[in-house]
């Protein structure tokens, strides 16, 4: 299922117009927001929408869990895999 991680990275790059960043620049365990990749709250909304559209999963906008799901590629991978199962 390593492909899903690459797919998620590409989705992040395309959705958020990260022109200068490649798949290899995003680490699986690195923070996506603030530290690490440095995404912000608008990115979170944009990315949430893209994940919802692409994988047809439900995302609760205000829960603490959602924050956790979007913390890194590893967390996002686990969330999408579980939601689709």
């Amino acid at each position: 299922m390593a492909d899903l991680k690459i797919e998620l990275k590409q989705l992040i790059i395309d959705t958020l117009d990260l022109e200068d960043i490649g798949i290899d620049d995003i680490q699986d365990d690195e923070a996506l927001f603030i530290d690490g990749l440095g995404l912000d709250s608008i990115d979170a909304l944009e990315l949430g929408l893209a994940i919802k559209k692409t994988y047809d999963v439900k995302i609760d906008a205000n829960s603490e869990e959602t924050k956790q799901h979007f913390s890194s590629i590893n967390a996002l991978y686990a969330f999408v895999k579980q939601a689709k199962a």
């Binding site: 608008i42 909304l45 944009e46 929408l49 919802k52 559209k53």
Partner: peptide, 9 residues
């Protein structure tokens, strides 16, 4: 369709 938050903002 859902609106892009970035575009909307």
């Amino acid at each position: 369709n859902a609106l892009s938050p970035t575009a909307f903002g």
